[in-house]
Computed example of a mutant assay.
Amino acid sequence: MAIVEKTGFEDGAFRVSEAQAGDYVELLKPRVMSLVVFTAFVGLVTAQTSVNPFIAIFSILAIAVGAGASGALNMWYDADIDAIMTRTATRPVPSGRVLPGEALIFGLFLSAFSVMTLGLVANWLAASLLAFTIFFYAVIYTMWLKRWTPQNIVIGGAAGAFPPIIGWAAATGQIGLESVIQFLIIFLWTPPHFWALALFKSADYGRAGVPMLPNVAGEASTKRQIFAYTLLVAVVGVLPTVLGHASLGYGIVAGALGIGFVWYAWKVLAMPEIDRVMRPAKALFGYSLLYLFAVFAALLVDSVIARVGIAGW
């Protein structure tokens, strides 16, 4: 019966919805996909290897499709809790615009297509990493960690951190230390980003029964852990310069962005527990998005400048 409810198969028949194209686009989580595409592109470019434009373009497209497949599978499985939360209730599956079975088939097809495409266009190391990332997000995180442990975001954050490594592998056929550092930046950035959201959406997560840290460990513990992870992100963000992988210019930019991140996290740490508006948490959530895009943009610019040989940066 659980399988029937999850897939949309009822009494041996399969119902077909009247979903529009835009509903399937929404299944791909385009905002999340944009971050995946950007960080994968940075990983590919910072590899400092000459890549055929055809291979580069289709590799990034395959990674984007793989990210969308993960989103579709996540929305298929999470339809029950998405329907309860105000932030997600209007998504295609819980709203009934797309049937669960359609979302499942769509996600599985895109998963296979993206992995095969990346393997044939680039190399099978990159394709294997993409396949593992989809599996990790859809199965390990969505089906297990998210509903089981308040550390779901910490461990599950690995899925969102793999794109730079996949991009690097697509360009080089290897995994480089620089791409691992980029992985660490995203991996350590994920907890403060999502825990800031969880602070002002704790009632939503509570109704859905998702054990997010504020609901399990309390607001005070969450704020302390946000601050601790933010300190780690600020330090790891400048490692490319410290290790000689990026210029001093990048290090200054990353350092300034890290100080800003720590400042916003400090404001959350000092936030009174009686503050129901939670403006500091909302501000941190917004700044965290700016931080990640800006740090990876700085890496991209630094790599391009190094490639064309412009001095003084």
Score class of each variant (00 low, 15 high):
L61E: 04
P163S: 10
I165V: 15
A203V: 02
R91L: 14
E26K: 14
K267N: 13
Q20A: 14
L239W: 15
V139Y: 12
N74M: 04
G173R: 07
S288W: 11
A40N: 10
L108F: 14
S114K: 00
W195D: 05
W148S: 15
A283R: 08
A254N: 05
D80R: 14
F132D: 06
P272E: 06
V236N: 11
V233T: 09
I60F: 09
G12L: 10
D302F: 04
L257Y: 09
D78T: 04
A159T: 00
F162C: 06
F183T: 12
A196C: 03
F293V: 13
L130A: 08
V93G: 08
A19K: 09
V139A: 11
Y141R: 05
I63K: 07
A203S: 11
G107V: 10
V180G: 01
G156T: 04
L188K: 02
V277L: 13
A294K: 11
F41H: 03
Y77G: 03
A246F: 00
E273G: 15
S114G: 11
P272A: 14
G156Y: 01
A217R: 15
A198L: 09
R276K: 11
I84E: 09
Y291S: 04
E178G: 04
V32N: 12
L188A: 15
P100S: 14
A69H: 13
Q151M: 13
K6C: 02
V98E: 10
L130K: 02
G66E: 08
R224M: 13
G244T: 07
W195S: 06
L284Y: 07
V51Q: 05
L104W: 12
W266N: 00
T190W: 04
G43E: 14
F183C: 07
N74A: 02
L28Y: 09
N215I: 03
L130N: 03
F58W: 15
F183E: 05
A203K: 03
L248R: 08
A89F: 04
G66F: 03
F9C: 08
G101A: 10
I63M: 13
V36I: 15
V154F: 11
G119M: 08
P100H: 15
H245A: 07
R307H: 11
I84K: 08
V180Y: 10
G107T: 08
I186Q: 07
F187E: 10
A89N: 04
F38V: 07
T88Q: 12
V268N: 07
T7R: 09
I81F: 12
Y229P: 06
W189R: 13
L197F: 11
R307N: 11
Y205V: 03
P92D: 10
I153R: 01
M212V: 13
V154R: 01
W189V: 13
Q20H: 08
R31D: 10
N152R: 06
V139W: 06
V16F: 13
P150L: 07
I57Q: 13
V121R: 02
G8T: 09
V233C: 10
A306V: 00
Y264A: 01
I55G: 02
A294F: 09
V301A: 10
G8P: 11
T90L: 04
T241D: 07
F293H: 14
P280T: 13
T117F: 07
L299M: 14
A228P: 02
F183W: 08
R97W: 09
F296N: 08
L27S: 00
W148D: 03
T241K: 14
F227E: 06
F200P: 02
I81N: 04
